[in-house]
């Protein structure tokens, strides 16, 4: 009799562990990785080093300079668009709007929309677009930069996109790319598909709850 009690307790404990397991769900890390061996306290340890987004420099809709340092301690989503785009961009930003509204009061979250048409999309044009979209503050930055810089950064995001979808072109496929506080790629989502964007919102919450994200400054 007594034993049955223990067994039940053990089973419950087991369930408890499983439960915990799903509560501490984490997102995969995308991009190239390489093992790096170093010596810590006289012992050899091998760490995996993941690809990170390289340094960059753009200007946002307020005319402020935005670099990788502006994103220290932030989780962010990046995409590519241009203000006069007649095809998928209105769909992407219609889908991005709920993401903006969900996280706009979180100081550790950003959205970066890179314009791929720097000639037309000057800072005042981007500001006007932001006003018409009804976005204010610093949550959602619309970025102006020279074409080379934009394509270079796109390529560093592209790695993750390619893992999913080798043939297609990032700028015209409307991907949303999720980057963590360590500047690693944690997810890519089809920005034209409301269901995928909902999944992204759920993933952002999972990411925010990860221990090394909470700890990162």
């Amino acid at each position: 009799m007594k034993n049955t009690g223990y067994i039940i307790a053990l089973i419950l404990l087991g369930y408890g562990c499983k439960f915990n397991d799903s509560a501490t769900k984490t997102l995969p890390i995308y991009g190239n990785k390489e093992p790096v061996t170093k010596t810590v306290d006289g012992k050899q340890v091998t760490d995996t080093v993941y690809q990170t987004i390289p340094a960059f420099k753009f200007v946002n809709q307020y005319g402020d300079t935005i670099t990788e340092k502006s994103l220290n301690g932030k989780i962010y989503v990046a995409d590519f668009f241009f203000t006069t785009c007649p095809t998928i961009c209105p769909v992407m930003h219609r889908n991005m709007l709920p993401v903006y509204n969900e996280f706009k009061n979180n100081p550790d979250f950003r959205i970066l929309s890179h314009s791929i048409d720097p000639k037309y999309d000057t800072v005042p044009v981007l500001k006007k677009y932001a006003d018409k979209m009804g976005i204010a503050g610093n949550t959602w930055w619309l970025l102006h930069g020279n074409k080379d810089a934009t394509y270079t950064i796109a390529k560093s995001y592209l790695v993750a996109v390619q893992e999913k979808n080798a043939q297609e072109n990032y700028t015209h496929d409307g991907f949303f790319i999720l980057i963590d506080k360590q500047k690693r790629i944690r997810g890519t989502y089809q920005g034209t598909d409301p269901a995928e964007v909902e999944k992204m919102t759920a993933d952002i919450k999972i990411l925010m709850a990860e221990t090394d994200q909470k700890a990162a400054k």
Partner: peptide
Amino acid sequence: QNCHGAKGEGLQGLI
């Protein structure tokens, strides 16, 4: 639909 939306709702102050 891409611009005006599935329900003809438009997009904020843009469309």
